[in-house]
Structure formats: C-alpha cells, structure tokens
C-alpha cells in the first residue's frame, strides 16, 4: 500500500451531498477482475455526456463541460472536497480504486459512509472529516482562487490552507500508523495468529455448530 505522510495538491470541489459509489464508479466497470485502470471512468456519468462501456477508450468521448474535474483550473487535482455522506451505497472498493487511479490522495467531507471510509484506508487514500463550516470555508476559498492548493500533514493531523490556517482532524491510531508506514494489515493481523487460534478453541467448546464445515 502507498504511504501517506505529507501531501500538497490542488483541491477540486464536488458540490453535492450523498454522492454514492454508483456515481463514483458505475456498475459496468465493476466487471473488471483487476484493481487498476478505473481512473478514466471515475464519475463516468457526471464526467462524460455519453454512456461509457468497459474496455472502451475514453479518448474522444464528449466531456461534460459543467463537471468540476473537466474544468481547466482543476486539472491535476489530488484532493477532493465533498459534501455530507460521501461514498454512500454499495460497498464496491472500486470507488477508492478509481479515485486513487485518477490521482486523488485525499477526500475531505463533513461525513462519509462507513464502508467507503474503511475502504479508503486499505488503499492509501486518506478520508478526512472536517466540521461542516470548515468544509464550507474550503469550498468558498477554492472557488475564489485559481490553483487553490491544500497541504495535508497526517503526522500532525492537519489540513493547512494557503493562508497558513491549520484545521485539525481526527483519525484512529491504527489507521494512521498503517497509512504513515504503508503497512499491509493482513500481515499485522497474522502476527496475532495465536490469539485467533485460542479464540477458535474456546468458541468451538461453546458453539461447536459454528465450526461445522460448509462443503
């Protein structure tokens, strides 16, 4: 997994609430058996005017000029500003895969849906929850300034605006540790194999039917 320590990049504001994972990456692209290559279809139905197909080149497809990521000033954006309940709906991890593949490293919103929030951390993508008013302020500042950039300092848990204002955010210790070090959590869990086996032993005595084989 990619490490996340410090990051500075252009912030692109996606001004709508309840952005669902169907919107982030529509279902026809979920047929891939790979983890990569979803970036060109990120927000496909918002970004293009036609209906996208898997394995289709996106070169020459008609772009929706209204959509934020198609505007010249947000080219190269790596931080997404979003509204409440971002990532709701389907559990598809293809959503963070698509954001990551497009080039986003961080999403800032007043709230996230839980499964999406979890999935981000598994992919080196940092979801940051800030208070409504702070998110609103970032939306306004990014609209007012071409090339508006934010810096994220994960170690200090800060979002830093161009004027130097620091906005603190919280994050679970374990997740922070994994992101800072780019750690694979399966490896970490397997360090506790003895605990897992001990649990199985004890539980097998209490509820043996839960260990009947599915076969």
């Amino acid at each position: 997994m990619n490490k996340f320590v410090l990051h500075t990049g252009i912030a692109a504001p996606l001004d709508r609430a309840n952005v669902d994972t169907d919107m982030i990456i529509p279902k026809q692209f979920l047929k891939s058996i790979k983890r990569s290559g979803f970036g060109k279809n990120l927000f496909d139905e918002l970004r293009y005017l036609d209906e996208g197909q898997p394995d289709q080149s996106c070169e020459g497809r008609p772009l929706n000029p209204e959509f934020v990521l198609n505007q010249p000033r947000y080219q190269g954006a790596s931080i997404l500003l979003a509204r409440e309940n971002f990532g709701c709906g389907s559990s598809r991890e293809h959503a963070p895969w698509a954001l990551d593949d497009y080039g986003f490293r961080c999403v800032i919103a007043p709230s996230f849906a839980e499964i999406f929030y979890n999935n981000c951390f598994k992919n080196g993508l940092l979801p940051i929850v800030l208070h409504d008013e702070k998110v609103d302020q970032l939306f306004k500042e990014s609209a007012a300034t071409d090339g508006y950039q934010l810096s994220i300092d994960l170690e200090r848990q800060l979002v830093i605006t161009p004027s130097g204002e620091e906005m603190a955010f919280s994050i679970d210790g374990f997740r922070k540790h994994c992101l800072l070090n780019g750690l694979d959590d399966i490896g970490l869990t397997l360090q506790h194999s003895d605990d897992i086996r001990a649990y199985e032993e004890k539980r097998r005595q209490q509820a043996p039917w839960l260990f009947d084989a599915i076969k």
């Binding site: 983890r35 963070p96 499964i115 869990t189 397997l190 897992i196």
Partner: peptide, 20 residues
C-alpha cells in the same frame, strides 16, 4: 455486514476483521 474487497481478502486470510 458488508465489507470491501481488501477486507474480503483479510477475512479469507485471517478469519477476522479489524473493526470498531
């Protein structure tokens, strides 16, 4: 509950889920 694909892999490999 529903989980993402990385967690599917985690459960396959460890029979456990990291959760809160």
């Amino acid at each position: 509950h529903g989980i993402g694909t990385s967690e599917v892999e985690h459960v396959l490999a460890t029979q456990c889920l990291i959760t809160k």
